[in-house]
Nucleic acid binder design. Structure first.
Lengths: 183, 183
DNA sequence: GGGGCATGTCAACAACCGTTGACAAAAAAG
DNA sequence: CTTTTTTGTCAACGGTTGTTGACATGCCCC
């Protein structure tokens, strides 16, 4: 939010903050432009409309094609690429909550779906060894998203109050169970 | 949708169908009344408004205080109470997807949150034995919601294509890992 | 039959939505 | 300096939202 930041980037930053926490259809163009301190008409000029602005924020979601880790380190690398989604100090929106907030949306749901399918689940399955790679990748995603959901959205006390390393141990426990699924 | 069904119940049924799949803010009053074949003004008359109609549908969500099972059977009873959320033949909305669809909403999120906290997590923890009951209950919820999310919302192929009993085995695997968490 | 009550219809409201085009100001290019 | 291009402001648009009040209709009870 520095004064030198171009209007376009101020818009993008405000859109990311709002879209990622409140969801596409729960954020109006005027919400964003008020937060960014610019006029509402500039969204259409710079991004072609609200939809284009949302898709621009979508580019900030990491994909898992480039994960350079294997075995046990893979899990840590995957979680770390999502900007400490289980750190209580990180009140910012993270990619997990972003995807959770927008999967329901009737307009943007398809884009979120294919992003998770092709950007997360498929590359993760390609990096796994052994049988049931796709099922195990899906289960790992379920564990990570489920824990993020319980913590950030449902705010279950047992996951929000303890120090983050304890929660991390539980996440690791569940995620490794997913990866070790057999038969 | 029988002709003898009262208008109030027709409204409630249509609201459940739409709210549970598309989320509170993505459904308009006119969407519901058109589906029910009644006038839009009747929502305000019968339920005091859109918000009241949504809260009326909230009463249909099962709580876990009344679960009469223990040990290994507890998991099966919990999942069964949610109306076969992993059955592909059940394209209807189920309570899992209902809660997922509405947790984001700025107006209804609080109600959904307390429902999950006090209606699901807390009573489940009370039925568990041993240490870490609250953490294990939260992890079990994370596993169930995570798998429902991957299947119904993100539509990961590895969880939508196989027959339901295979998916059930994976859910059971992940859920039991959650329940067996130690240290 | 007639008063009272429930039930449903209709039009309209004010508020908000995303988007557009005209216009002003500033900067860049000639 | 003049022209052109960029950058931002403003008012307004058509559409949709949830809600309201007036009005018509049917039904029961006295």
């Amino acid at each position: 939010m520095t004064k030198t930041a171009s209007t376009r980037e101020r818009l993008l930053a405000a859109a990311r903050d709002l879209f990622w926490t409140r969801g596409y259809s729960n954020v109006s163009v005027r919400d964003i432009t008020n937060a960014a301190g610019v006029d509402a008409a500039l969204v259409s000029r710079y991004f072609g409309g609200k939809q284009g602005l949302f898709e621009a924020t979508l580019a900030g979601i990491p994909r898992w094609e480039a994960l350079d880790a294997e075995g046990e380190a893979l899990l840590a690398a995957a979680v770390a690429s999502f900007a400490h989604p289980f750190d209580p100090d990180c009140v910012q929106a993270n990619p997990f909550t972003m995807l959770l907030s927008n999967i329901i949306d009737p307009e943007m749901g398809d884009k979120i779906r294919t992003l998770v399918q092709e950007g997360l689940a498929a590359p993760l399955a390609r990096k796994l060894d052994g049988p049931y790679v796709e099922e195990r990748a899906a289960m790992l995603l379920a564990a990570l998203f489920g824990m993020a959901l319980m913590r950030k959205n449902f705010q279950i006390a047992a996951l929000t109050d303890p120090p983050p390393q304890e929660v991390s141990a539980q996440i690791r426990h569940l995620a490794q169970a997913a990866l070790h699924f057999k038969a």
